[in-house]
Design a binder for these strands. Structure first.
Lengths: 230, 230
DNA sequence: CGCCGCACTGAACAAGTGTTTAATGTGTTG
DNA sequence: CAACACATTAAACACTTGTTCAGTGCGGCG
């Protein structure tokens, strides 16, 4: 009796909820808001999903499955392949990516599951490449796997800033094309021309504690990401 | 009008708000909640800041200034130096980092400002290093700068997953020490042992459009982050 | 037919929200 | 002292929230 595409009501509600949560966040998206998008009453949502939290759980599960399991979409491709897929069908995947971003920065069990799946996919990929002799030897493979996963996710989480910063409008194909070579270069040769920073850090880590003797502060002790300044 | 003597209370409210927003998110943190943390009434917050949005704006501005401007903290160090600083005084900076994460994934003008400042700091750092002959030639410096900024931010935004994935409890010093060498190695030599993927992508980008002729899908066209599978 | 089950609804509810109002204290100033 | 300014508050207000309730209508089945 429901008009338009006879898509089962439950699914319509779920999709509307995913869109609303992705767009405005879980707290800001109200049941009445979602209900209106789905063309139903708020009460019906509760009737079907028990509560707003129940709805959220179902959305979480659906997004995780769609992104990770379904059709083995990223089974062999890591976060990168996911993005490529997503780009191919932007209309359909955009809400999912937005939802995923919100998810990964929340602390729910579903978020942990999703991240673990992504990590596992990345690990599989890297292990294949290692077996093919494509990878340089890694001193701590777990760290490498996690880092590659993080780096693959960063452009999705920060897509707004990424696009704005490079003068594009969202994760357009043009933008991704522009990223390809520089990033792949980075993954292939690194950023630095020599071992200076690396050996400095290596030495600094040998010495147990205490600021180094030498000049300014060439490499106190630890050092997160883009290595360090002066 | 507003004398400097009423600063303490205002500051206490602001700090409580930052903590609450960081912990629970802007929507979920109520004025009464913040008021209780600061030991005042909800009405006083409105009296001082006009509205909840006014309070938010002031928090945004304060966080941006503290992280970016104040004491030229990251002026020469990029996102990395910021993290190092933050680690040195975790108690004090943790709420700021949490707040920053929330900010960067929201779309407010303050978030854009913050990201631009971080990008500018990264650019300065990289240009210094380039001048010192430490950097490999970059085909698109803007992309490199943005990417390095993104990669420096990723461990902060996803610190929960990063820590959990490596069996640590938050961004501890142990964890950062463990990250140092692998990441610096990555920044120095890259991940891959040869140019295979790079040249493949390079060739693929030459060809204007259309799926490649050959076998499966060795390198259709673009390719986001960790290069790709099979 | 009558009855059940169920998708579905509008209205009501209690709790919580940001904000307003009126009032109280307290310090400074003329 | 009185007069004012202002930080501060409890209480009330208007509104939104998630959820409950009491139904309505419709399809299948005896």
């Amino acid at each position: 009796m429901r008009s338009a595409s006879d898509a089962p009501t439950r699914d319509r509600i779920r999709d509307a909820a995913i869109a609303a949560f992705a767009e405005r966040g879980f707290d800001a998206a109200s049941l009445r808001d979602i209900a209106q998008r789905a063309g139903v009453s708020a009460a019906l949502i509760v009737h079907h999903f028990g509560s707003k939290d129940g709805l959220r759980e179902e959305c979480d599960a659906y997004v995780v499955q769609t992104l990770v399991t379904d059709k083995g979409r990223i089974a062999g491709g890591g976060a990168s392949a996911m993005m490529r897929e997503a780009l191919a069908d932007r209309q359909r995947y955009e809400p999912l990516l937005d939802y995923m971003s919100r998810m990964l920065t929340s602390d729910t069990a579903a978020a942990d599951d999703l991240f673990d799946s992504l990590t596992a996919a990345t690990r599989t990929l890297l292990e294949q490449q290692a077996a093919a002799g494509m990878l340089r030897p890694q001193s701590d493979m777990d760290v490498t796997v996690t880092a590659v996963t993080l780096y693959g996710l960063a452009p999705v989480l920060l897509r707004r800033q990424l696009a704005r910063s490079l003068g594009e409008d969202g994760l357009t194909e043009t933008l991704l094309r522009r990223l390809t070579l520089p990033l792949l270069e980075f993954y292939t040769h690194g950023l630095y021309a020599d071992d200076r920073l690396l050996t400095a850090a290596h030495d600094a880590l040998e010495r147990p504690i205490g600021p180094p003797s030498g000049k300014g502060d060439n490499e106190p002790y630890q050092d997160p990401d883009p290595p360090l300044a002066e």
